[in-house]
């Protein structure tokens, strides 16, 4: 085990949301002081692991620890983000770090939320290529220009940071699709190989699915992959309006 020399250590005051469904108690914030190296900028996930060394009952999801799997989405000092790629220097203020689960979703335990609502909305947009062309077992060619249209859309890792930062999704998680699902809806609508464009737009043409977005851009400000769901949603809105005219 690596040991850190005493003079290189500083103490970080962590406050972590705790909830255990078996305890019958209400959620509470647990204060934990952790020793972090002074000369290195560690990630929030690393700090959580240090806290877990003191209290092994702290629960959170994590897997790849490099911002690819999207499992450690959490609310860090009030802003959603991935613990594994958020350095402490970016979020810690006055030596304090408050970590809560993603807002608006039912908490299963501590920082683990039930993503069912989020995934249900994702399913609704049929996140796969639909083509009425005969399947001859070969790939469907696409021009370089058409492929370029998917940049900024396909990179989404479905961490849920954006949708759970969106007030429209908080108030109508069953009717408003949320920024993550809508970004993916636009990804397939703008794919030249997809032939179900009109049906996809039909599905979105109601007062809630898309039009509950009021462009406040919370989604853009929290996306750990730097994507812009607001822009994609605006494009869908424009398509729907053009069709109606």
């Amino acid at each position: 085990m690596n040991t850190i020399a005493v003079e290189q250590i500083s103490t970080l005051k962590m406050s972590i949301y705790r909830y255990d469904p078996d305890s019958g108690k209400k959620p509470y914030m647990q204060e934990i002081n952790v020793d972090i190296p002074k000369d290195k900028d560690i990630m929030v996930l690393d700090a959580l692991h240090l806290a877990k060394e003191q209290d092994p009952s702290i629960s959170f999801r994590r897997s790849c620890r490099e911002g690819v799997c999207g499992s450690d989405g959490m609310n860090i000092n009030g802003k959603n983000g991935l613990g594994c790629i958020t350095p402490l220097s970016e979020v810690v203020k006055k030596n304090k770090l408050e970590i809560r689960p993603l807002p608006g979703l039912p908490v299963v335990k501590d920082l683990i939320v039930d993503m069912t609502q989020f995934v249900d909305q994702y399913k609704k947009i049929r996140p796969y290529l639909i083509s009425d062309k005969e399947d001859n077992g070969k790939e469907i060619p696409q021009t370089i220009e058409d492929r370029d249209k998917l940049d900024g859309l396909y990179e989404c890792i479905l961490c849920g940071c954006c949708s759970t930062a969106c007030p429209s999704f908080w108030w109508n998680p069953d009717k408003f699709l949320g920024p993550a699902a809508l970004l993916q809806a636009y990804r397939f609508i703008s794919d030249s190989r997809d032939t179900a464009r009109e049906e996809r737009l039909d599905q979105l043409e109601d007062a809630f699915s898309v039009f509950r977005c009021h462009g406040i851009m919370n989604c853009v400000s929290v996306c750990p992959k730097g994507l812009n769901p607001t822009k994609a949603i605006n494009e869908i809105k424009k398509m729907l309006v053009k069709r109606a005219l």
């Binding site: 949301y17 959620p27 802003k79 809560r100 807002p103 039912p106 908490v107 908080w170 462009g215 406040i216």
Partner: peptide, 18 residues
């Protein structure tokens, strides 16, 4: 009992556009 939901608006950052 129903699981809790964290939605304390005073603890969630709101960008100026919000």
């Amino acid at each position: 009992s129903r699981p809790p939901i964290f939605l304390n608006l005073l603890k969630i950052q709101l960008p100026v556009a919000g």
